[in-house]
């Protein structure tokens, strides 16, 4: 079990998402929200009330949802497509590839309730393949913010970026993790804690668990670096290679299948430049059993204790600096 987050308020990042969208919409009349009967689950109720005509609800039809968004962008609008991540990515993947990424239309794809946020609703509603599907598509930025402040800044950065972006958002409560004065940029990782024994790299809902794991490791005298890698594509290769060079071992943790996601992306960089031992934590290649997201993450070795245990195991395999 994760340590009780005493004194830490947990936030649903959808609130920061929806508030920021409205702030942007106040000053940019081209900004519209496009959704698939997902007004409530995307927290767009206030947006709809404020600008009923700028909330385009296409009903339960994801191929048309994304295709229309590409056309809306062609026609001069700035569409933020808001839909459950599982249906947005799986159902409309060819539209994302062809109409949005290949055609380079200025569409922002916001996958809400990603990962296993729908918990007990089961694997049909889990979105634990979306990093893999989206990050192999050329010309598509893939971003998974970790807390409300990073969500706010990521939404603004997506609006400013002149091209396709996939924002992967959750509904699972998370504490604040980014420091005051933090400036988010697409493609730039954030080092949240320094250390030289190994590096824990996570994003989204796993960042605070990685920080807690580092705290546990510190009690044993192990100094773990913790990196929040919100952008899965393009990756911050410099930060990854700093981790290999300066810490010699990397544990990754993500609310995604262990195949093809953040850990795999990092491993592609590591193996090509500076191979060091790695441990990739994620959903272990199965359809998850019934349970809440938090329970499932714990079960898959991603409680703070679980991440710390993987770190200790990895340290045993780490080569001395002189031989690297």
């Amino acid at each position: 079990m994760s340590p009780a987050p005493t004194g830490r308020a947990l936030h649903d990042c959808r609130d920061a998402f929806a508030e920021t969208l409205m702030e942007l919409a106040e000053t940019n009349p081209a900004l519209i929200a496009v959704c698939n009967d997902s007004v409530g689950s995307s927290k767009l109720g206030a947006f709809q009330q404020r600008w009923p005509e700028r909330l385009v609800n296409v009903g339960i039809a994801e191929q048309n949802l994304v295709g229309m968004a590409a056309g809306l962008a062609n026609g001069g609008m700035l569409p933020f497509v808001c839909a459950a991540a599982s249906f947005l990515t799986a159902r409309a993947l060819e539209q994302i590839k062809t109409d949005v990424a290949y055609a380079n239309t200025n569409v922002k794809l916001c996958g809400i309730s990603s990962g296993m946020a729908y918990g007990e609703l089961g694997p049909t509603h889990h979105s634990v393949e979306d990093f893999a599907w989206t990050r192999v598509i050329a010309n598509l930025r893939v971003v998974a913010p970790a807390d409300p402040e990073e969500t706010r800044q990521a939404v603004r950065a997506a609006a400013e970026h002149p091209g396709p972006v996939f924002l992967r958002l959750s509904r699972m409560g998370v504490p604040d993790v980014v420091p005051a004065g933090y400036a988010f940029a697409i493609g730039r990782a954030l080092r949240l804690r320094d250390g030289h024994d190994l590096t824990l790299i996570a994003n989204g809902t796993l960042v605070h668990r990685a920080l807690d794991a580092a705290e546990l490791l510190a009690r044993d005298g192990i100094e773990a670096r913790v990196v929040n890698m919100a952008t899965v594509r393009p990756l911050d290769e410099a930060e990854i290679l700093a981790a290999t060079r300066e810490t010699g071992a990397i544990v990754t943790a993500e609310e995604h299948q262990v195949h093809g996601g953040l850990g795999s992306a990092i491993a592609e960089v590591v193996v090509g430049h500076d191979p060091v031992p790695m441990k990739l934590l994620g959903v272990p290649g199965i359809f998850a059993p019934t349970g809440s997201a938090s329970w499932l993450l714990d079960r898959f070795g991603m409680s703070a204790e679980g991440i710390a245990a993987s770190a200790r195991e990895l340290l045993a395999r780490k080569r001395p600096a002189a031989t690297r």
């Binding site: 519209i32 005509e53 700028r54 385009v56 191929q63 048309n64 994304v66 295709g67 229309m68 968004a69 590409a70 056309g71 809306l72 962008a73 062609n74 026609g75 001069g76 609008m77 569409p79 060819e94 539209q95 062809t98 109409d99 290949y102 055609a103 239309t105």
Partner: peptide, 23 residues
């Protein structure tokens, strides 16, 4: 718009027409 896989043009065109209406 980029086409090739079939069934893509009409949704995109619907988005374009909706954009003209919104504007």
């Amino acid at each position: 718009t980029n086409t090739g896989p079939l069934g893509h043009g009409l949704p995109v065109a619907v988005g374009m027409a909706k954009a003209a209406k919104l504007r």
